[in-house]
Design a protein around this nucleic acid. Sequence first.
DNA 1: CCTGTTGACTTCACGCTTCAAGTCATCGGG
DNA 2: CCCGATGACTTGAAGCGTGAAGTCAACAGG
Lengths: 165, 165
Amino acid sequence: MATEEPPWLDEGEWRAWVAFASVLVRLPAVLDARLQRDAGVSHFEYAAMAALSEAPERTLRMSDLASAADGSLSRLSQVVGRLEKRGWVRRTPDPADGRYTLAVLTDDGWDKVVEAAPGHVRAVREFVFDPLSKAQVRQLTGIGGRIMRAIDPDCYAPGRPQAGK
Amino acid sequence: MATEEPPWLDEGEWRAWVAFASVLVRLPAVLDARLQRDAGVSHFEYAAMAALSEAPERTLRMSDLASAADGSLSRLSQVVGRLEKRGWVRRTPDPADGRYTLAVLTDDGWDKVVEAAPGHVRAVREFVFDPLSKAQVRQLTGIGGRIMRAIDPDCYAPGRPQAGK
DNA sequence: CCTGTTGACTTCACGCTTCAAGTCATCGGG
DNA sequence: CCCGATGACTTGAAGCGTGAAGTCAACAGG
């Protein structure tokens, strides 16, 4: 029963895959390049600061920030080191439990996010939402959810009725 | 006219973006990890060898191979160097024009592709096509095409009637 | 034939990511 | 109070990607 499925892609799947695989490679590349050019930060740095900017007290534990930004703790530690050198983030041991380290977005860091966000949103709109119809946006939501649940069933519940923030 | 569009994402777009952005980060990561674990090659190395395996004579000029594999010439040059050391690819100056370099897939390289392909297809099926309905696969084709055309209008014509290979 | 130009590829230095230790604070058991 | 275990983070070496500069073959003009 291990090989219930056809081993190869049929023509419809193949067409979908060539188109989608290109998107997987090129879309992150152009979004990264825009962010780098317009704001001088990588997408991962931006994601980390954006996550902090939405957190209470603009503060998050390193490990929570790592998963919020979809990266390893090691990677995050180095990135936060760079952001700290640029004055956008500060690190403090958690007063409640010294094993944790808290990352805090500074006022300069907040300003940086506010400066970078509109350009990033504009890029996302230009390459993703402008070319799509309203129906396709709905379809994309469903498709993205299905694929994410296949990759990581714990990432979020399927029919969560609450409005996400 | 520069700011015709709303600067922010509405709720439907935002939900689509959170789901899709995660896919953009995690799907390449899991596919890469599978390929690395099962066949010991990176996705880019696999893509390069797969492109060669489908080319006439299993041969392509370096620059054509670079664009077929969606990477810079510089990156490709290094990867082909590594593949050559492993005996899977050979480099020859083009007899017709010495400015070009031809990359040729060796028999060992062919075997490697044949060995790696089923696992890769299985992974793509597991994470992309199994969780989607037939209708969603069609939708994904349309969405992917639209986004790609926004990124690179020259990448392929919209309604090309010819069956792509 | 010589020379400058073009374009394809290669190489090098640098920055980033990863993987495998290493450090440090806390907790539970003697 | 001490001691080992656990878990959160940090660090260091190694590998990979990028951008700039270098090499080399072919061509076009004198």
